[in-house]
Design a protein around this nucleic acid. Structure first.
Lengths: 261, 261
DNA sequence: CGTCGTATTGAAGAGGATCAAAGCGCGTGG
DNA sequence: CCACGCGCTTTGATCCTCTTCAATACGACG
């Protein structure tokens, strides 16, 4: 056996020896951080204006990824960190028996692929949940640049740390919350991220299926569906398939702490 | 509400505004990586001999931590990354309602505290499960040093990435494994880490309680106990309180994939 | 020797999982 | 344009795993 989730050492899941062919691998358009509308959410976040311009030296390209297409696969060589420009992605792990665990959903300005640095190969799959576009940031160039810019170095570290903290939260959720708390935490988180991107915090479209939400939250799709229905009955949400409206943010927040005391 | 586990953004758990007083904060003894017996497991892992000597410039101190004592707390200012020299630690998160989630157990050569870089404050507590000693590596010095050494920079990145991958595995475990698989995966992982440190891979002493194992694995202490008993009945383990002997590694490994097909 | 913390074990109960069926939206092809 | 099939979702009924509550045992320590 070696598909087991090893906990401290790098996981050894299905090392598919495939070289993914990216049908969507269009000629690169050079993109500049300094003129990007996402610069306050994305990599440059925290850098001063003149420092952001140094990032322009990266000259990274964009890549369009169509709905359902992979951005990278488990086992792919690690070369880039990807920043979402538009669209939504899910990242997931697969066990040899086919069980999947969604490890994250990623929207504009968020980074993916940092798990690949550990072993030089990506440990997870990333797949577009709608037509999407990413910046492919060559990691080697990034560290070159960081070598002459302590601030940038610090920021890269902070981004990785943020990923660690994000996963901490998810562990908390998976380890000690019930179905209602999980879904509530998920929706609140989504709501905050939508808001940060200038969208409504109370009404949005889910890009992922019930099964994908379930995998992410460690529950079955039926349970996800039931919990949505429950929240609707309670007047906390209005749900129509993938369209969600948060009616009572107060009580949704409270649901996360329902079992308190 | 704000104790909710936010998933993408940094978690906001109990920001205890306390300045921990470390009773065990003894005068620092300067320690050198190049002469350390853990150099193949720890930070210098992957650096060539002459490069390791550059790490000696760090001049970091050691700190002894007694059983039950905290190394750092949630909310403590982030200054150091800690490398375990001896002993075992657990790191955990606390929700406002007191629910705890153990996020990791750490033994000789392993690093802790990288979650603090995200916000400048530690997001988790670290506590010694036995009398222990750590190296306190000043993060600022580390990045200074890395600025002139691309290899070191790469290694720091890799260590953080490894932490991300480790947590991926735990998410997989928490999200899609049953009690038997969880405990089996836990024990196998422990076994591998003991082996890497020159201890027996088949017989060891658990430093943590059933409750702590349970918290880590997302199950109750009774279930942990019952699963230990089950494995013993099946002749897979011999268990006497905290002393564990793996009798049938084959079947323990198989237990991780029991539900396969 | 009594007490406290930890572990084990049993019995009962609850929360999700599983199995199953039906509804809905959507694209395809006749 | 409509019929059909497919994928996703919802909902119900039943089952099962793990939790909860409780009692007991064990060892360390004052």
């Amino acid at each position: 056996m070696q598909a087991a989730a090893t906990l401290e050492a790098p996981i050894r899941v299905v090392p598919r020896a495939r070289t993914t062919t990216y049908t969507s691998d269009v000629p690169t358009i050079t993109t500049l951080c300094s003129t990007c509308h996402l610069k306050d959410l994305c990599l440059p976040c925290g850098l001063a204006g003149n420092e952001v311009q140094r990032l322009d030296g990266l000259m990274f390209g964009r890549r369009k990824v169509k709905l359902g297409q992979p951005l990278f696969h488990e086992g792919d060589k690690f070369q880039f960190i990807y920043a979402v420009r538009s669209g939504t992605f899910k990242t997931s792990l697969t066990l040899r028996d086919g069980r999947q665990q969604v490890t994250g959903f990623h929207m504009a300005g968020e980074l993916m692929g940092m798990d690949g640095l550990a072993s030089g190969r990506h440990a997870s799959v990333s797949e577009a949940l709608e037509d999407a576009e990413v910046c492919a940031i060559p990691y080697a160039h990034l560290t070159d640049l960081a070598a002459h810019n302590p601030n940038l170095q610090h920021i890269v570290g902070r981004l990785m740390s943020r990923e660690i903290v994000r996963e901490h939260s998810l562990m908390m959720l998976l380890g000690s919350m019930n179905a209602e708390e999980r879904l509530a935490a998920f929706l609140l988180n989504l709501s905050q991220r939508m808001k940060a991107r200038g969208y409504s915090a109370s009404e949005f479209h889910l890009r992922m299926s019930r099964a994908e939400i379930g995998s992410y939250l460690g529950m079955k799709l039926e349970t996800v569906s039931r919990t949505f229905s429950l929240f609707q009955q309670q007047g906390i949400l209005e749900v129509d398939k993938k369209h969600v409206r948060i009616v009572d943010l107060e009580r949704l927040s409270y649901a996360v702490e329902a079992r308190v005391q």
